[in-house]
Amino acid sequence: MMRLPEIRMLKILFALLLLVISVTGRAAIETYRFDDASQEESYKKLVAELRCLVCQNQNLADSNAELAHDMRRKTYELIIAGKTDDEIVDFMVARYGDFVMYNPPVKSTTMLLWFGPLVFLLIAASVVFVFMRKQKKNAPVVSAQQQKQVHKLLDE
């Protein structure tokens, strides 16, 4: 049986452990100070939208790569300098290309990306349509006599 002071000690130890966990959780990403809430919102939106070029399946917010770190810092600096969201995206696109956007613009080179899935859907739908019509056509014709027989058998 544990005595009261021991339990209290354990509680304190536990609280300290929780503190450690929260500290390591925050250590991976740097924190920035903003002048107002709209700037912070812009920052959050941009780092979620912009793509890291090293770890290509992560956005800037998720990535821990050094390049992502640099790009986050640049994003922050540009926001503080009073640039608009569009200007910051343009800044990144001028350097890293459309690749840097998770929401790429519709243009000739991205047509397949935007409309490819729709084309596949249409192909699949027409295949299903043709298949179903064929099934209907090949369905066996049941005569009135046979119909009666079926009902009789089912009733028994």
Binding site: L53, V54, L67, D70, M71, K74, A94, R95, Y96, G97
Partner: peptide, 13 residues
């Protein structure tokens, strides 16, 4: 060291 020029040239590696 701060990647200023590297970013201006679009360097990613």
């Amino acid at each position: 060291p701060q990647s200023n020029v590297a970013m201006d040239w679009g360097v990613y590696g």
